[in-house]
Design a protein around this nucleic acid. Structure first.
Lengths: 247, 247
DNA sequence: CAGTGGTCTAGACCACACG
DNA sequence: GTGTGGTCTAGACCACTGA
């Protein structure tokens, strides 16, 4: 009916994306792209502009840039799919599709509750908490960053000494008699902070899907507050919604 | 020759963010920040670096940059909160909290099904479809971009001539006898394309929450395929998840 | 060591809003 | 026209990797 109005000539960015898209498609997975200065020269743009255009492809998981090594085309990875009606650990989801995941960079610390944590966990401010941060890897690549915060009486650091594979949920299910019932998760899109970007080996500002969740027992007590950052392209979350007034 | 050696060269970004954060907090909502060249000089950085640091604050909805006018501090806006168990239109959600929303930039077109659309809508490729794209505004600011695609026999362009306020869901509920039952939505974090960035008045590459949804009737027929892009900071989606099976 | 991506700079020009 | 943010450039230096 109507035609989209599109500014074309001045926007090098879009032309670049088209060229890069073709170049990536024509490069076998695992292979390296030309170095940035050379590629910029080839395409007739500055390196800054080239890098900006490359960002979106990295965000989609099509390429991976590694400092000191180069930029590589990534093959279509297996996707971890999950509905949001049931809470399951990444390990459980991965096992279902025979995908191997591992944990890297585990960091356990004892902290005092900040106002945000105190509210989320329904504890006093400055209460003693245990925080468990770790990166989840699939196919030798970081794909998620998970931070769980729990009251010290729910889980002590010692409980993590042996056989912790990355899932606090599985640990609580196996090693405690807590009647876990539900989890309430808020869903947000966020930009990667410099710290999280470093851990996930992406650029700062890249998009991440964030779940901020509280884990409840059947008595309504909060036993865990978690932040889960997911790289796009490796996870696929879906939810079935009921239409109001139907049923 | 007398080039300055950079001090804390790897931390300029974080220092900048701290300074900007304080500056934004101290500026009353609605007021303007200094112009970029001046602010860059004040803070002792280049304009490019300043702009990069400002991006995250715009992504959080704390500031708003408007070409030709300036950069403004935004007051804490009212948040549209919704659970994902029930599908409701933004209009319905907004009405509940007495928030005024309006529709801008309605764009209705007749198109032929692309492969993606054909799959999602369970129709033949090149089937005649109606596509409805529009921006949703709250507090005189674009906050969401919605694109609905439907088979022509479900909804004709003529049905949109009068009284369409932005919600295809509400229109289908009111003006058709279709037994709408459920919606299946995939949840992703995406970077804004140049086109969507322009429509939502944000920067390209800014983070958006995207729902890709199919709307089903009780007989399992797909009547609508929609893409919904949400600005962070204006919406809060949550879901309650059931903990499955203690082993 | 050489080569890669990561960051930052200074300056230029463009597109847009407003008087 | 003036002043704003939006885009792009050419070049410099830093941080990291691997031979």
């Amino acid at each position: 009916m109507t035609q989209e109005v599109q500014v074309e000539s001045t926007h090098i960015f879009q032309r670049l994306q088209t060229q890069l898209s073709r170049m990536i498609a024509e490069t076998p997975p695992g292979n390296r792209l030309p170095a940035e200065p050379e590629l910029a020269k080839q395409l007739g743009v500055s390196r800054a502009t080239l890098r900006e255009a490359m960002r979106s492809f990295e965000g989609q998981g099509l390429i991976r840039r590694r400092q000191g090594i180069g930029t590589f085309v990534v093959g279509h990875s297996q996707v971890i799919e999950s509905g949001l009606e049931v809470l399951e650990s990444i390990e459980t989801l991965a096992r279902r599709i025979q995908l191997e995941v591992s944990m890297g960079a585990l960091h356990v610390s004892q902290i005092k509750a900040t106002p945000t944590m105190a509210t989320a966990l329904q504890v006093e401010e400055n209460a003693q908490l245990v925080q468990i941060a770790r990166v989840i890897q699939a196919e030798r690549r970081p794909v998620a960053y998970l931070v769980d915060t729990l009251p010290e009486d729910i889980l002590a650091p010692a409980d993590l000494q042996q056989g912790f594979t990355g899932s606090v949920l599985d640990l609580l299910l196996q090693h405690s008699s807590l009647p876990l019932a539900t989890s309430r998760a808020e869903i947000q899109a966020v930009a990667a902070s410099p710290e999280i970007a470093r851990l996930l080996e992406i650029q700062r500002g890249d998009v991440l899907l964030l779940f901020s969740a509280q884990l409840f027992t059947s008595t309504g007590k909060v036993v865990d507050y978690s932040l889960s950052y997911f790289l796009p392209g490796y996870f696929q979350f879906h939810v079935v919604r009921r239409v109001e007034g139907s049923r």
